[in-house]
Design a protein around this nucleic acid. Structure first.
Length: 249
DNA sequence: AAGATCGACAACCGCCAGCCA
DNA sequence: GTGGCTGGCGGTTGTCGATCT
């Protein structure tokens, strides 16, 4: 297609972020907002592509992120939402303040999927496995145990038939074939997306040289932002301050 | 104690949608 | 209407610590 890469790959660093890079990114974004992500690494003095900066910020550095494993109620919510929405992790994450799509996706793949299989529930259709097995017996006999794991996600990846395309297929979620049980319980949550993100960015916008206006007085002079880096380890709740409270002030 | 294997999660890749000139 | 650019998404891979042999 001749599309230009999002960055000059030859001069871009890849791999795990260092504490120094994190500091630079946090410092820049809280001082300026993210402007255009493509410009962020340049202006912040980072040898990363804008995309990488955006991911690092949204998935790891954002101060409103919760850290640590999903709680039981959160896990149940993920299962319910997945039953209704399928692999639309961003939509699922939108219903769970402080959690990212990446985090939920990882947790699904490493924990919940196995948990559901153990419980005899198909992780994709949310149907009982026995029912699913009956439907698949015609072609699963020769497949190894791993491959036999009923999982549409392990189909050969054909770009264009993946999640990106699902986004334009509003009713492609597995819930179409399931009973309404959990889906009804959460239907009220799906009326509209959580507004948290916008408020958060408004907050950052206010931080444009005048943090006090945002209700949170943060000193960036002299690089005193260690408190923010600490969120990575403890989560914002551990400071006795919820994000919504911060916005309300 | 050392190497092999596994599991969890951070990060990357490639695609699409939407915006704008 | 068209093409380029950016942000955002989901799938996949890479890395590293934990556990096992």
């Amino acid at each position: 297609m001749g599309r230009k890469p999002c960055c000059d790959k030859l001069r871009v660093k890849k791999g795990p972020w260092t504490a120094e890079e994190d500091r630079k990114l946090i410092s820049f974004i809280l001082a300026n907002g993210h402007l255009c992500w493509r410009l962020v690494p340049k202006l912040a003095g980072l040898l990363r592509c804008g995309k990488s900066c955006r991911l690092r910020w949204t998935n790891y550095l954002r101060p409103d992120l919760k850290r640590g494993l999903l709680t039981e109620p959160e896990e149940q919510l993920v299962i319910d939402l997945h039953a209704r929405l399928g692999n639309r992790w961003s939509k699922i994450a939108a219903q769970m303040p402080g959690r990212t799509d990446n985090e939920i996706k990882n947790h699904w793949n490493t924990h919940i999927k196995k948990k559901l299989l153990k419980m005899g529930i198909h992780p994709v259709t949310h149907e009982p496995l026995s029912k699913q097995a009956a439907a698949e017996t015609t072609h699963s006999a020769n497949i190894s145990a791993d491959q036999a794991e009923p999982d549409s996600e392990s189909q050969p990846r054909t770009q264009g038939s993946n999640g990106a395309q699902n986004r334009s297929e509003e009713n492609s979620s597995p819930s179409n074939s399931t009973s309404e049980g959990p889906a009804l319980e959460i239907s009220c949550l799906l009326e509209e997306d959580m507004p948290l993100t916008d408020e958060f960015w408004n907050f950052l916008g206010n931080a444009d040289g005048n943090e006090a206006d945002a209700g949170l007085s943060v000193s960036w002079e002299g690089g005193t932002y260690d408190w923010l880096l600490d969120y990575q380890d403890f989560g914002i709740e551990d400071f006795g301050l919820s994000v919504s409270e911060a916005f309300d002030n």
